[in-house]
Design a protein around this nucleic acid. Structure first.
Lengths: 233, 233
DNA sequence: CAAAAATTATGTTTTAAAACATATTTCAGT
DNA sequence: ACTGAAATATGTTTTAAAACATAATTTTTG
């Protein structure tokens, strides 16, 4: 498990695909204005209502974007893996953040002043189109998620969450264990259910030999079954 | 009630704010490539899985964008009023449509070939930034909606739907009657509930003198009560 | 290392909403 | 204007999931 800090050159190589879109001048400005920040496990990165100031890019670690709803219940809206960008929507919409973000585990995030990014966009079509594409992908996921979370039953929602985690963070060397260890509460907040129901439903999956659980480790035994449960809802 | 067809010059004046972003050359291309289409009540405009070919702009009428989920249940994702654009997300994300759209009532829609629009975007920053903004607003609404639909109770969801319809389509001259007449089924699909529950819950609101119903006409009597019910969920 | 706190686990009860059923009314097409 | 279909209305039953409760672990922290 790597534990070292992230250097500037590490960071620049990670955001290469964004940097490639920039002009020489913009690249220089990027180097001058980019900052790197460490967030510990469960540390808040931004909160609902905050003014969006920076484009964030997750360099290493894992992050959740969530929203608190009725009676303080939390819904995880999306999860972020390296190297993905976040925090841009609210700025473009001229709003304060309507979501919050925090680190699942120790994470390094680089920040680029959003005013600067927007400035670049005004003279850099490729960068603008990059965000058009990102936002379009995000919106598709969000619309799909609305329907899944409202219409699927508990088992379907949990199965979908497991698939979602697998797609987002992948599997360990055994090719079966999810590479992220979430609390049951996070799993519940991802699947729109109560913590007790996440625990119960996951136990059922284990009893049915669909998954094997060892604390927070979840090993997927029968992927087809999970896909089927997710699909039929 | 206006019933006439929509002319090219009507249309051009409606899409003025988009046209203003274009160069002279692009404006000429727009005039040559823009087409106007009439859709009757309940007519399908595009379907899930279709290849997105055109940027659509609703010139007159009312349109719903929806998604069919588990067991064919329909969720209305958003409603469109004149002059709003639709149909662009899937193209930008390089996907087929994941939603469908149809007309609540007779609607005129103008179509502009999406390849052309994208071409313009590649040489027109303002146009690109227009879509960045649109997508960002859409995404904010979608994320908010995910939480509302999953966490609010039936009464809260219906109240929210009524507010949403009021914001989208406004009120009639009496300053109280919603300017859109939906079937109870559409109201249910907007609020994530069964038709029977939409009927029942709306009847309750009427019994509580929060609204007055006359067929599909819904008159809002106690706006504060509706806002409160929506808020507390 | 031990105590406190948080998390996981399960059983039971309650509740909200769906499913089912059946009239009644309204609407659309001939 | 008539007729079948669609939409509305309302009552009853069933079911899924939340709420509540309590205990056993595990994790964190002083």
């Amino acid at each position: 498990m790597k534990r070292e800090a992230v250097s500037m050159s590490d960071t620049l190589s990670k955001i290469q695909s964004l940097a490639d879109l920039l002009t020489e001048k913009q690249l220089l400005e990027l180097r001058r204005n980019l900052t790197i920040h460490k967030y510990s496990k469960n540390e808040l990165i931004y909160n609902e209502g905050d003014v969006p100031m920076s484009l964030l890019c997750l360099i290493s670690g894992k992050v959740k974007v969530y929203k608190s709803g009725v009676g303080g219940r939390t819904q995880i809206i999306r999860v972020i893996k390296p190297v993905q960008y976040l925090g841009y929507r609210a700025y473009f919409a001229n709003q304060n953040y309507v979501t919050a973000a925090s680190a699942f585990e120790t994470s390094y995030i680089c920040k680029i002043p959003m005013d600067l990014v927007y400035h670049w966009m005004e003279e850099n079509i490729k960068l603008s189109l990059f965000f058009v594409r990102q936002l379009s992908l995000d919106l598709g996921v969000s619309d799909q998620r609305t329907v899944s979370l409202t219409q699927k039953h508990i088992r379907g929602r949990l199965a979908e969450a497991l698939l979602f985690l697998q797609e987002s963070y992948g599997l360990e060397e055994d090719g079966a264990t999810l590479s992220i260890y979430l609390t049951r509460e996070d799993l519940a907040n991802l699947s729109n259910m109560t913590t007790a129901n996440a625990i119960r439903t996951l136990s059922s999956f284990a009893a049915e030999k669909i998954v094997a659980i060892d604390g927070r480790k979840i090993k997927i035994i029968d992927m087809d079954a999970i896909k089927k449960i997710s699909k039929i809802g």
